[in-house]
Design a protein around this nucleic acid. Structure first.
Lengths: 190, 190
DNA sequence: AACTAACCTAATTACTATTAGGTTAGCGGA
DNA sequence: TCCGCTAACCTAATAGTAATTAGGTTAGTT
């Protein structure tokens, strides 16, 4: 319901109704609407991290690990169609909810930047453990937002196969990698 | 304020206050909050269309027109920092507001798909005037969402120059073109 | 028999869009 | 000069919505 209608649009009364109970029961289980929202986000985050853990630091070469990770992501989206909207997109609820989303999006961006930086043979990384190179971060953000948009678009076109989605998504990642590898030309100070 | 706080988060009382008036004055000028919202969206749409008209159907080659259009887009974002959030992103307000955004995003996606299809020497287009090829549409959606994400990210990093943003954005467009036609790249430095 | 989990109906509270009704100031015409 | 007319503004309701809580019932469990 949060994915369908946004934070404000999802009313406790209707959440309770669709669960077959009344509002006070919701409050027997959650401190507040925001608490419910936070727990849903955290559950999703946990599932995604658990799912990706095996792909992201395995010993297989990137040419196998990355397609496997993308495919796992597409499977997750397929089996959790609310996730792209609620987990990846929403940024307009309460200030607290927005802060959670900005944190999540930032984590995703940094993870992608680390992957790009690591896979790109060490090019264009500055600090090592701190802030990534801005151009890496920009490339990562384009990837993140692009993949999120693709997943959201997919919701409205369920007839599109997962293979097609994965193919496009992989192109985004490959070209991103290629771009970073070739990319000193737009590094700051160059 | 809609960009800052979302549709629900922007209260008429505060909108009026920041304008130096009281709520009834807002209703002297707009039928409702939704009407105000719609007019803001339509103004932005008009400005963008007017701005792009000269680039999109000119006679210059794509290698000049597309960078010029992207640069114009970046200038618009720079001078209207609220635009990426309110115009391109928000999807969680009232159902009517969501419908407006979905329409706008759909128009942008179709426009990008048409550009990709047209510039890609006619490859992969099916109908001509109706629905584009799904793979074209997917590539367009990745571009649209990626550019939107990049613009939104830029809001938090105003120290990044427009040139850097344009360079990345151009590569994104190149990704789409590459994907569709494997055409020759015209990114800077090539 | 005490305890707890799960559930209910019926307030309560707070917020916020919207409107009612009225005041003031400028302005064109009789 | 005086008279409507209108634009822009105000204070003070109104009204609907929605989160949250008060207080209590029932059924199972130790």
């Amino acid at each position: 319901m949060f994915a369908e209608s946004g934070y404000h649009g999802a009313a406790i009364a209707e959440i309770a109704h669709r669960s077959g109970v009344t509002p006070p029961v919701v409050y027997d289980h959650f401190d507040s609407k925001l608490d419910l929202y936070r727990r849903l986000l955290e559950r999703t985050r946990g599932e995604l991290l658990e799912m990706w853990a095996e792909y992201l630091d395995g010993s297989a070469p990137a040419s196998e690990r990355i397609p496997a990770a993308i495919d796992a992501w597409a499977r997750y989206v397929q089996s959790h169609p609310f996730a792209p909207r609620m987990y990846f997109v929403e940024t307009t609820g309460l200030p607290e909810a927005r802060a959670m989303h900005e944190e999540i999006q930032g984590q995703a961006r940094l993870a992608l930047a680390a992957i790009l930086g690591g896979e790109a043979a060490g090019l264009a990384t500055t600090g090592g453990d701190g802030e990534p190179d801005p151009s890496l971060e920009m490339a990562a953000e384009v990837m993140r937002a692009g993949l999120t948009g693709l997943a959201t678009w997919w919701l409205g076109r369920p007839e599109v196969s997962r293979e097609q989605i994965v193919a496009i998504a992989l192109d985004v990642v490959w070209v991103g990698l290629e771009r970073v590898s070739a990319g000193e030309r737009w590094s700051p100070g160059a």
